[in-house]
Amino acid sequence: MSILEVKDVQKVFDNRKVLDGVNLTVEKGETMVIMGGSGCGKSTLLKIMIGQLKPGSGEVFIDGEEIVHLNDSEMDRVRLKFGMLYQGGALLNSLTLAQNVALPLTEHTHLDKKIIDIMVKMKLAQVGLAGFEKKMPSELSGGMKKRAALARAIALDPSIVFYDEPGAGLDPIVAAVIDRLIMDLSKKLGMTSVVVTHEMKSAFRIADKMAVLFKGRVIACGAPDEIKNSANPYVQQFIGGSLEAASVSAKDSTEEYIKSLVEGN
């Protein structure tokens, strides 16, 4: 059984179809990378997959459970199955790293403080931050913040971790360290990773499977080699980073702009 399934998901914002029938299947232990240019709908899709946003239509299954129709308290229960690494890390600045990582454990378990303290040390060690327990987020570099946020995301041993642009704002070396962590969690712990990114190098480094989103639709999905050899011109333009790909988006947005002026939307 797939651990994550997105079925015919659609979403419209202000008469603009952001997602237009997205289908996606992620198997247990797999690293799925969702790629696409700005405005292709990948952030909207991520929000729908983690239950932050309801789609206009369609279904999302996490570990066999349909989540679109769940209420807030039911969704909170499902959220324990996954971790989320936000683009900016989203650490609480008033708390130490240890307190940040301990937060989900104190909120969602009845474990003794001594056990939680040991777990926090382990989680920070897993992301290469052993000994940083008492540091405040403001004392850390961007890469360290992201690693600390990852330690918090995996505190409850989730089956799936969602990553929103994990390499954003990091230099290539630090971004590669984050990629290595994602791969380690997947290979050694069997965690499923769903990564939204537009960074090609990182995507091809970590992916077992890739999905390319364009105009709210999955236009290609498969192993990295299949994506590399895709006959779809947009996929080729996108992975090649050519100017033509950018011009496709620019042309589309100009058309939309003109249309909105004409129609007064």
């Binding site: 378990t109 056990i115 382990m122």
Partner: peptide, 11 residues
């Protein structure tokens, strides 16, 4: 064995 289980063995 989860992290909580590991922490128990570490203790």
């Amino acid at each position: 064995i989860s992290s909580a289980g590991l922490a128990t063995l570490i203790e």
